[in-house]
Design a protein around this nucleic acid. Structure first.
Length: 967
RNA sequence: GCCCCGGUAGACCAACGGCAGAGUCAAUGGUCUCAAACACCAUCCAGUGUGGGUUCGAAUCCCACCCGGGGCACCA
């Protein structure tokens, strides 16, 4: 496992007697440094904007670029961690860089930029430990990232880079927050509108207030409360995910299914706390439906669909027998209402206590009571047991448990008395927290009914031959298409209807009789937007003495973080569910208490001390690249329209290509879509979606090795022997996974640049496989890409003198055909991001070039080869281009175009199959008619022998491909 | 349990339904070298996870199963 570069002291190709101009790591480093400097000096990759500070001077080269079609291609920007980049991180960056370099040459105006998602926990935790300000840590890390990226030759527009922590960026993040705060969702028009328009509706009486009083009679506090019920950003006292171990609350998306924090894996508790929320649920339908307009990987779309979790069904109200209460259930199968034989409430359901009677009804089966003497005890015991069960235990144990409440409900369609249970298989947080149980047609209800001896009633006729007696079934019969039976009651009959029609009829009946209505529920919940952290965007909000929130005016932005001595929130024992959040900003009392004039004279106010979650900046950064220096708006509409606007009526617009890891499938991508849609509704952006096309790059994974004690050993020092893997003379176990410090298997791009140069590293990463595929890192294989570039170099440059050895040497037709086939293939493959096959074709052409270049390289091959290599190995390509006699950078040289004349061969060899086996080959003209080919095939010696005089039943000629003879 | 993605040479990966190999690493032999490394030349290497089906013809399309990776998981 020792790699060759290390054996030679760190730099490949170097040797005491190497020719002075051999392409070695040292020469590559020299070339790379030189071209990186030149690109920077000349602003080579600056993309012109239509308007604003980045608009080109008339008549400049950039002005010409504006006339071309555009491409906007970015990667998910990184959080700059203290560890720097390892070889896995830049996979996507290199891919978009190769693509955009190609697109520039192919005639597009290309916007390619990179920034930093720089708020976040690690810098803050470091600050807590060391006292170093997170800004300082962050800036140091960003500098390091910038250095590493520059060294890879990534061609970004340097004017468009920023960090989300930059005060100018924070200013617009806060500004967008205020736009969201000052908006409401008009469910009739399906779009966000300014809150002022809602106020007008209330004031004019066009929209009644919640309690019917005229708007003018409401107090200021009451009005604020009403409006908070509509604002897209609002404060609410609601159950939130409180994580004592992190000292902050978390969004639902940041909590794992087993109830722990995604970061840190600490326990999370539900607590009622006043927090900022984002009304993302208002956009549930559009976030779901618009997925269809996006070119995204299907798994990502599916994860978002699952997360939004829309389901259509009905709410049905069941009266409780001998009670004034009624219980509303949500069901997706209202057509099976006649099959409901019991009801289940979540243990936490509000009405449980109210409906539980003092004693068990007569004839209550012992199994239903949980062994308790009375229902109240049974319910209390069960609730306690359910509460102490962890989410994980609930999941692992799928056996249905529950207990009878002693109460009965009345089925509205037939008046049947059905027992009401509580059971933890019904979740408090979904639907209404109550279900009607239809054991014959639901797997879960079936299992519960079997366990507790509850009756079943078949109301959908099985069409799989199992018969219509549920007692004889092994499981529920679930069908969305079969016919409904046994469903005639109080003025309604569903018998004979197929399930979809039955759903509709019963919904109409329920609505007409006041028992319910068709409805839609979602798993998606509003987005918790407060964090008790220091290193985040402050909210641009203050509170007056009554506690009413006041947004700050745009001129007051950005609200900057105060300097503090202590960056830590008060953290608690990770299991201390009773603790309460205390944000670090609350300690900055001079900052918190301010005197402001918000229009009615100077008054005392208190600042919001929570900060925004670190998703805020990434919700809109793709817009800021478009107009990074705009001081009047997040982005000028003309610039947004040019780079991201919809292409046609069906196109949502957005970034032309977005590359990043699948781990952001729900969180970042859902939040960013939400903000974008709000900005779209309010008229700030033309595009309806932020990211038109998305590709998830694979992971670069690596082997890690553990010794007999289970400790990781440095992977680079492990050797592979016939007896297995050995470290320091002792056998070690190999495992495969992520690259990371703790696994001691990190390889950095800097090491690869030292050993081979950035161009080699780029070519290697791109030739490892398709972008979407994960692949194992193998340092020793990098040398293959190095050899390729070395062959290109050696063919075109004299290793002794450094002079070009290119000449106007004639090439034969076969070579010329290979050249044009390569151009054709590389163009297609590169445009489609199939870089591995594009590079393979370039290697093939290079190998041919080596063969024909004994006395010098034919210019006819050399020039297009250099241009085609350029997207992948830009530095060496620039150097060669210059040696070929060109003064300008090749960044905007037209990509070679294949001549169709040389794409067809002078003759075609057809394999001839007889009964599926290849028996011979014939060579004919490429445009030979089918009957000519057939005649030639049948006449071929070996084919004729195989035929042995028999007449073929059938002869198939596939033009250009093959001949198949069937006997 | 359900849903995705993937199984092709020792490894990574190619192959519009048409001769399984474009390319890379490794291995083996050679050239160069005092020797090695680098470099170069040459050679070796699989019938495509398994079983069916469709077809003149299947790695490719269909069905079932096995293995690996990922996602969801009592969502009514």
């Amino acid at each position: 496992m020792t790699d060759s570069a290390q054996q030679t002291g760190g730099a490949a190709g170097s040797g005491a007697d190497a020719p002075p101009y051999r392409y070695t790591a040292a020469l590559a480093a020299d070339i790379e440094r030189r071209w990186q400097d030149r690109w920077e000096e000349q602003g080579t990759f600056r993309a012109p904007n239509p308007v604003g500070p980045l608009a080109p001077a008339p008549g400049s080269a950039e002005a010409d670029r504006l006339t071309r079609p555009k491409k906007y291609v970015i990667d998910m920007f990184p959080y700059p961690s203290g560890a720097g980049l390892h070889v896995g991180h830049p996979l996507g960056y290199i891919a978009t860089d190769c693509l955009t370099r190609f697109q520039r040459m192919a005639g597009f105006n290309v916007l390619h930029a990179m920034g930093f998602d720089a708020f976040g926990l690690p810098a803050e935790q470091y600050a807590v430990q060391t006292g170093q300000h997170p800004r300082k840590t962050t800036e140091e890390n960003i500098d390091r990232y910038r250095g590493q990226m520059r060294r890879l030759g990534l061609a970004y527009d340097d004017r468009r880079s920023f960090a989300t922590t930059d005060p100018e960026f924070v200013r617009w993040t806060q500004w967008i927050f205020l736009q969201i705060y000052n908006s409401w969702y008009d469910a009739e028009q399906h779009r966000a509108r300014p809150i002022g328009e809602l106020v007008e509706q209330f004031a004019s009486g066009a929209r009644p207030t919640p309690d019917g009083r005229p708007w003018a009679q409401l107090s200021e506090t009451e009005r604020a409360g009403v409006l908070d019920g509509h604002r897209l950003a609002y404060r609410s006292e609601a159950p939130v995910n409180w994580c004592p171990g992190l000292g902050t609350v978390l969004a639902n998306e940041e909590v794992t299914p087993d109830g722990r924090s995604e970061r840190g894996n600490f326990p999370v508790f539900r607590r009622d706390l006043a927090q900022w929320m984002m009304r993302i649920t208002a956009y549930a339908d559009r976030l779901l439906d618009d997925l269809d307009t996006l070119e995204w990987p299907e798994p990502v779309k599916m994860m978002q669909r699952n997360w939004i979790g829309r389901s259509h069904g009905a709410r049905v109200a069941f009266d409780v027998a001998e009670h004034a209460e009624s219980i509303t259930v949500f069901t997706t199968r209202p057509d099976t209402l006649f099959g409901a034989t019991y009801m289940v409430l979540a243990p936490e359901h509000d009405l449980v206590t109210a409906i539980t009677p003092a004693s068990w009804p007569a004839d209550t089966p012992a199994a239903w009571t949980g062994g308790a003497a009375d229902p109240a005890t049974a319910v209390a015991d069960y609730r306690r047991a359910a509460a102490t069960k962890s989410e994980l235990e609930r999941q692992e144990n799928k056996d249905k448990t529950g207990v009878f409440t002693g109460a009965y409900a009345i089925n509205p369609v037939n008046g049947a008395r059905i027992p009401i249970f509580i059971a933890d298989y019904v979740l408090a947080g979904y639907g209404t927290g109550a279900i009607m149980a239809v054991p014959a047609h639901d797997h879960r209800d079936f299992a519960f009914a079997r366990a507790y001896g509850l009756p079943m009633r078949c109301v959908v006729a099985p069409d799989d031959g199992r018969g219509d007696d549920p007692a004889s079934w092994d499981d529920a019969f679930v069908s969305g298409t079969a016919a409904v039976v046994n469903s005639t009651g109080d003025g309604v009959s569903l018998d004979g209807l197929a399930v979809p029609e039955a759903k509709k009829r019963i919904a109409d009946w329920l609505a007409a009789h006041g028992h319910g209505e068709a409805t839609t529920t979602y798993k998606l919940r509003d987005w918790l937007f407060s964090r008790q952290r220091y290193w985040g965007e402050p909210f641009p909000v203050v509170y007056d003495e009554q506690g009413l929130a006041h947004p700050l005016p745009a001129e007051a932005l950005p609200v900057e973080l105060p300097e503090v001595d202590d960056f830590s929130p008060v953290t608690f024992d990770a299991d201390d569910a009773d603790s309460s959040p205390a944000p670090p900003l609350a300690k900055a009392t001079d900052w918190v208490h301010v005197t402001l004039d918000l229009g009615d004279g100077p008054k005392r106010y208190r600042r919001e001390t929570n900060t925004m979650p670190n998703w805020a900046g990434s919700c809109w950064y793709e817009l800021r690249y478009l107009d990074p220096t705009n001081a009047d708006a997040p982005v000028d509409p003309a610039n947004e329209q040019y780079w991201m606007g919809p292409r046609d009526a069906t196109d949502p617009g957005g970034v032309d290509l977005y590359v990043g890891g699948v781990e952001h499938a729900v969180l970042h991508l859902l939040y960013a879509r939400f903000w974008h849609k709000v900005l779209h509704d309010l008229g700030y952006v033309d595009s309806a979606e932020p990211f038109r096309r998305l590709i998830n790059q694979g992971y670069v994974q690596a082997y890690a090795y553990t010794d007999e004690r289970g400790f990781y050993v440095p992977a680079e020092q492990v050797e592979s022997t016939d007896d297995g893997y050995v470290y320091d003379g002792r056998p070690v176990e190999r495992e495969y996974g992520k690259m990371g410090k703790s696994l001691k298997n990190v390889v950095t791009p800097d090491e690869m640049c030292d050993a081979y140069g950035a161009d080699t590293f780029r070519v290697y990463e791109m030739s490892m496989g398709p972008l979407e595929a994960s692949r194992p890192w193998e340092t020793r294989a990098v040398v293959g890409s190095f050899r390729f570039l070395q062959r290109v170099w050696r063919s075109l440059v004299d290793e002794q003198t450094g002079q070009p050895r290119v000449a106007d040497i004639a090439i034969d037709d076969d070579t010329r055909r290979l050249l044009h086939r390569t151009i054709d293939g590389v163009t297609t493959e590169t445009a489609e991001l199939r870089f591995n096959t594009a590079i393979a074709k370039l290697i093939e052409l290079t190998n041919k070039l080596v063969q024909v270049s004994a006395d010098g390289a034919p210019r006819e091959i050399a020039e297009p080869l250099v241009l085609m290599v350029a997207p992948f190995a830009p530095h060496v390509a620039e150097q060669l281009w210059q040696l070929l006699g060109h003064d300008d950078s090749l960044a905007y040289q037209p990509f070679p175009v294949a001549d169709p004349q040389w794409l067809t061969a002078p003759s075609v060899v057809y394999p001839v199959q007889v009964n599926g086996k290849v028996r011979g080959r014939i060579e004919v003209a490429p445009d030979a008619a089918a009957d000519v080919v057939e005649a030639a095939a049948l006449a071929e010696e070996k084919v004729a022998a195989a035929l042995a005089g028999r007449t073929p039943r059938k002869v198939i000629v596939v033009p250009g491909r093959m001949v198949s003879v069937v006997l």
